[in-house]
Design a protein around this nucleic acid. Sequence first.
DNA 1: TCATTAAATTGTT
DNA 2: AACAATTTAATGA
Length: 239
Amino acid sequence: MPSHDSRPLRERARAPSEVELGSIPWLAVLEPDDQRMARSSIVLAHAGPGEQICRIGRPATYWFGVLEGLLKMSNEPGAGAPVTFTGVPPGAWFGEGTLLKREPYRYNIESLRKSVVAGLPVDAFHDLLARSIPFNRFVLNQLNERLGQFIAARETDRLNNPDARVARNLAALFHPVLYPGVGQLLRITQLELGYLVGLSRQRVNEALQALQERRLIAVEYGGVRVLDLQGLRSYAPPA
DNA sequence: TCATTAAATTGTT
DNA sequence: AACAATTTAATGA
C-alpha cells in the first residue's frame, strides 16, 4: 500500500508498464536503439498529496514526467506565504534545464494529489542528448514552448481581474504541446485551482461559472473541460 | 454486480 | 468559514 509507505520516492520506484510508457510522447520519436535504452531506464513512482518530488538544492538525478495527477512548482521554500506557483499537469516533462547545467534543483516540486511520476535517470538523459537528434529536437521545442508560457505568465500576473487570471491560467494548463496528457479535460479541483491562481475557492468557482457562461469551458465534477482554448488565452473581462 | 456508506467536491451563504 | 447538496469512490454481501 503506497499510502502507508514512508520511504523516499526514489526507493519506491518501479518499472513502468507498457501503457504507461505509451503515454510518454518523446519515446515514439526515438530511433529503435535509443528507444530501447530509454524504456529500460525509466522508473516510476507514486506520490501522495503533499509529497515532494524534488527539493531545492538536491542533486539532480532525474528528468521528470507527470503521467497522472497534478504537481505544483514553487520557488519559495519553507512554510511562508506562497508567492509563485505553476501547475504541472499530466504530459509535462521538466527539469531539463537543471540537468543540462548539472546543477542542483532550483525548484520545489510537490504533489497536489495522488500522482504517477516517471523519471529518466540523468545519465540516460545525457546519453540521449549526446546522440539522438530527435530527442534534441523534442527538448528544444519544449524549451521554446515553455519560454512562450513564461512570457504569457508575466502578463497574466499583472492582470487584476480574477476571471481573467483564472482564464489565462487554465489556458496555460491546457497547452497541447507542453501538457499533451491533459487533453480536453483537465482534472483539477476548484480548491487546487485556487492554490495555483492565488484566489479563494469561492472566487475560483465564480470565475469558472463566468467562463462557462461565455462557452469557453464546461465545469465538471473534479475537473474543467476546455471548449475554446483561443478564447481562454485572450479572455478579457467585460467592460 | 448491486446496494449501502464514506469521502470528496461543488455551489451557496 | 461554514453549510447543504451532489458526485464519486470504497466497501462488502
